[in-house]
Design a protein around this nucleic acid. Structure first.
Lengths: 191, 191
DNA sequence: TCAGTTACACTCACTAGTCGGTATACTTCT
DNA sequence: AGAAGTATACCGACTAGTGAGTGTAACTGA
């Protein structure tokens, strides 16, 4: 009973993605994912060995699109590199105002699985953040900034900082504040 | 069967604190808290109406000590205000290297309860962060910084950013990077 | 007396994961 | 061609255990 052209495995990951992101990993049962995907739990377990594997697949699926989004926001922005960085935060603020926004899936997963540091989902999260950081560093290097790696780390800290803060207080204006801080740091690194 | 001089309610909150912080809210059962506190679940429910109430009590109990710690680190540090702020991050890095460190309890709770924005525990978290932010702002105002509130928000973003990042990648050196960024922002605000 | 506590049995909903079996389609042997 | 086998994908029903929270009667110490 395939309800769409998508392969079953993909449909399961889609369903898991929506539920895990929306309600949290531990709050969502495998049954709920199966139901959302329109199949039985038995079939889900045919495609995935365990819930942990499903969690990892959920985060894997968000890696590329997330980075691509940041890159698009960066490229489409007008002005110098400080303004391009600021634009990322501005766009983030816009998405954070949507009611279904629930922070960064990677950070929330790390928070939920804080007692299992070796979990595959955590490793995926670390890899994702490293990729974003490396992209930032290479962009800074291209602008001739002295220590691009250091600046990239600082921007990552502000990025994840506003994810965390806004998830708590639901005030997306903190993201614009983070954008200002980021622009200040970029200008300081350029000087 | 009181095993210590402490009142029962306090012993329950202590036990909950250790377990919730160490393993996460949803991962810890009320039975586990009761056992850790050395009493029966029935007694726990004599003192608390629900698990949610217990969660709120856990976070309430961390508010004052957490802020006091930051203030002590700030006051004990040598140098100008930028170095005093940096010192907070340096001390944070030290504690983050302890194996039992698991990030910020408030942020982790917000991540776990992302789908219940009105939860009392979330409100406690917001109030706590506001208190830290207000203290920072007043410290900056005392130094004659032009827009102390803005700078305080930026520091909060770095603070919570390094909590989030280090919880994910377990590399406490990000806290020192955050400290540098914070010092840069303070200096920029002084100029 | 009475708040605080205990033991313990209980409800009811939910949880990750499994058992045994079915339907379809493609392959392989004769 | 036709029978037999095999791989893939699927499902209803189940196990064994855990979750929060309750009911109740009896005990303890101030």
């Amino acid at each position: 009973m395939k309800t769409s052209g998508k392969p079953t495995r993909e449909r399961i990951v889609d369903a898991a993605s929506k539920l895990f992101y929306g309600e949290g990993i531990r709050a969502v049962s495998v049954d709920a994912v199966a139901e959302k995907a329109g199949l039985t739990k038995r079939t889900l377990y045919y495609h995935f060995q365990s819930k942990d594997e499903l969690i990892a697949a959920y985060l894997d699926g968000r890696d590329q699109p997330n980075l691509a989004l940041f890159q698009r926001w960066f490229e489409e922005a007008e002005g110098g590199i400080d303004q391009k960085i600021r634009a990322i935060f501005g766009n983030l603020a816009k998405s954070a105002r949507h009611p279904r926004w629930k922070g960064c899936g990677y950070l929330r997963t790390a928070a939920e699985l804080a007692d299992m540091p070796g979990h595959p989902a955590i490793k995926t999260g670390i890899a994702h953040k490293k990729r974003v950081e490396a992209w930032l560093a290479s962009s800074f290097a291209a602008e001739g900034i002295r220590s691009p790696e250091l600046l990239a780390r600082q921007i990552i800290l502000l990025l994840d900082g506003c994810f965390a803060v806004v998830l708590l207080n639901r005030d997306a204006s903190y993201m614009e504040t983070a954008g200002e801080a980021a622009a200040t740091l970029v200008k300081a690194a350029l000087a």
